[in-house]
Structures are given as structure tokens and as C-alpha cells.
Design a protein around this nucleic acid. Sequence first.
DNA 1: CCAATAGTGTCTGTGAGACAGTATGAG
DNA 2: CTCATACTGTCTCACAGACACTATTGG
Lengths: 229, 229
Amino acid sequence: MKTTLQIEKPFFTVDSVLFTMQENELKVLMVKRAEPPFEGRLGLPGGFIDISIDQDTDMTARRKLMNKTGLNPNYLEQLQVISGAHRDPRGFSVTLAYYALVAHQIVKPHIASVEEARWISVNELSKFAIAFDHQHIIELALQRLQQKTLYSMIPVFCLPQKFSITQLMTVIEAIIGKPIQRKSLMRRIEASEMFDISDEKISSGGRSAHLYTLKQDADIFNFERNLGA
Amino acid sequence: MKTTLQIEKPFFTVDSVLFTMQENELKVLMVKRAEPPFEGRLGLPGGFIDISIDQDTDMTARRKLMNKTGLNPNYLEQLQVISGAHRDPRGFSVTLAYYALVAHQIVKPHIASVEEARWISVNELSKFAIAFDHQHIIELALQRLQQKTLYSMIPVFCLPQKFSITQLMTVIEAIIGKPIQRKSLMRRIEASEMFDISDEKISSGGRSAHLYTLKQDADIFNFERNLGA
DNA sequence: CCAATAGTGTCTGTGAGACAGTATGAG
DNA sequence: CTCATACTGTCTCACAGACACTATTGG
């Protein structure tokens, strides 16, 4: 069946949902589309794979994010493939969606200069007209992030290298949308063995807090029970 | 940048890792490749998306499985995309891998007739020369299945509609590779509220066992703690 | 001193592990 | 009856939730 290769090929793109923590809110990076379809609307940063540059799709995702924000996310993972005949007016399309996390302060200086890109709070997304089914993809990414937050420490990748327990607690609560016990979080920091406690401290109006850092070699530890259930 | 679309496109294929339970062993469906590359070797069932037939990639996976085994799996979920320049000798390729589960007895009558397809025990896979990086993909699928087995009841999709607790226990133990407590499993069957207990029984040399069925409307329940940790 | 934030001590609750004990079928 | 397999009772243990209590900073 040498004919197999003659079948018409779908579009194949890679898009990323990049999250960060800014002003106690969980935000997503959106870019204003410069061309049709959906010209002028907000959409996810992404595009076509370039097999002359990209070694694999992870590289494509990172390269496209670099073009928009000037940096590599601290965490990047495949979300899922979304496909169908009607999600892109140009025809059948296949998109591989990623979700990613960065510390806000590092990204801030870059964005404005590069291109029309902005951080939008996940709570305010519904106020905008979003291109394609990207609204839905963000929904999926958020659900996955929430789930993973219940049994791992990934939210640290939204924070700077040195962070306090309160900062981590705030991100987690922003992600899962409800309060957690500080005590439980401290137990997990201990048990995961992923962090070093630095001697530096940060203060914000009361007793000053210890700062923690991710160990260099640290694997992401998965707990056997969920938080906040 | 209308030039974007002129970028050379990669191959895009869909492959599935179909698991079942047979003779107390976890098995994977492999097909003998009829064409190069890797002609004559065993590989995963899959192929190119046909946008004139398939509404999305799930359909592609189901269609390809139907061609090999004559049936729809009870459970089908995306695993991940694997991509790279060197995994297919014909050039840069992108594969969307699925994993799927079926009850063995239903599939049995179909396979031999359709094509050169066979069930291989996951423990004996290393004895064969497998096409592409499919060995690796199976590894990934198994890891995901193991993880998911710790906090859900998906292994039931390897069983017939009516099944006993012992059968379910056997599948789970085959998947995760270690014994679990019958008592814990019974607690989960209760708590999940996913099953009806039928009045039928099955016997195998001792006291006869109750048979259970999945409720028609049942969602897959996710537990907050892992099993067998 | 007080207010505010950080961190500890410790009790309760839940669900898994372990395993002895009881029930029910076949011969 | 005995044997094999199915199921129950119940204890322990690990870890999350709750929340009062102590510690440390700035004013």
C-alpha cells in the first residue's frame, strides 16, 4: 500500500499554555494574533514544527515560547492532542498542547519588548474573545495543573529560585482555588526531600520567613495521598 | 509570513498499545509488519490519520484497532506524542500513542482471522525484535497504566462485563506487579459506587463468588490515596 | 508593649495494610 | 466430614485537617 502516503495531511501545530503567578493571581500568557484566522484576537503562543531546527516537539514548544517571552519555562509537559475538522477554518488540524510554568519576575522584563503578549488572569479569560478552541485548551491545562498540584510540588516552578512557604502556599491556593493547611505543606516539603533550606530570610510585616530552594538534582516527588480533598 | 506553510511537514501517525488479561498475564497486541521499514518485525497497530474518514485522532486509533482486532476497546486514552528525526528511517516523524484496554474473551475470536496479529505477554516482549521505538512506547504505556491503577478502577476494562473480585484482583496484581489486599479492593468497590452486584455467581473449586458489573452511567472514580504503596 | 506573620505541638479522622476468623460451595 | 476459595471483623499505621499555642520581626 504505497498509496498510504498520498493521503492528505492535516495541519500539525504545537501550542503552549504558560502559567505564572503575579499579584496573587494565576495568569496565562496570551499573544495577539497578527494574521488570519482570528487576526487581532488573543491566542496561545505556538506554531508549526520546523524539522530543520527542532529535534522534537518539546523543542518546538520551547522555541515558540522563547520567541514570545525570551525564556525557557522551568517546567514543560505535554497536555494532550486536540484534533478535528472544524477547529481551524483552514481545514483539518492537529494540535499538540503543552502546559508550562515560569517564575513571574524573570519573565517580566522581556515580554513587552518582544511582541504583543500579555499575562491574563485565569479568572478574567472569559472577558476576552479567544482564538480557535484555545479557551478550552486552557481549561484542560488548568484541570491538569490542579490535579497534579494535589499530589506533587510542581507549583514551585511558578516561583523564583528562593521562595518562602507562604509564597508556595499562595500559589497552591490560587491553583486549586481553596485554602490549604500550612502545616500540611511543611510536612510535604520535609517528606519530599526536594528542597534545601537557605539561611536567608524574607520579611513582610511580621516574623521573617525562611527561604527554600529546589535541590539541583531533585526529581519531582509524587505523594501517595492528595491534598485538600 | 505566508511562508510558514511551506515548511516541510513531518510524518504524523497514531499507534495504540492495547492491553488485555489472558491466562493470568498482562498481554499486549502486536502485529507483524507487512512492509518496510522493519518488514516482518512486530510493531504496534496504528497508521496514518485519514481526514476523509476520521473525525479526530481517537477515531483513527479506534479504526486502526478495528482493522486488526475487529472491535472497539472498552477504554482508550491518549498516552503521549513521541517525535524526532531518527525514530523512523524515512525521516522526521511524529507519533501520537494511545493506550487501550479490552476484555480478552471478546477479542479472541477475531484476531487470527483478520491479519497476523498476536497477544504477547509484557514479560516476554524483550524476547522479540520490535519495530521502531515501539518497545519504549509500550514501556511508557505500562507505566501510565500502573500509575492509574493505583488510584482508579480502570483495570476492570480488561475484564468481561460480569467479573468477580478475585478476577479484578488478579488483573491489578498483574499490572502493578505485586500483591494487594482483597479487603482494600472490596472497600474501593464499595466507595467508588461504580458497580452493581449481580445475583449471579461463579465458582472455581471453593465458595462461589459474587459477580459485579459496571453501572451503565458510571464515571471513573479517582481515589485520593494510592493502593499498594 | 502590640500587631502581624512564621512556625510548632498535638489531637482527630480517614482509609490502606495485615491477618485472624467465619461462610459457603464441591467432593 | 475436609478442602478450597470467598468474605468479614477489627487492629494498626501513616498522613492530612484542624487549630491552639509559641516565636520572631517591625513599630
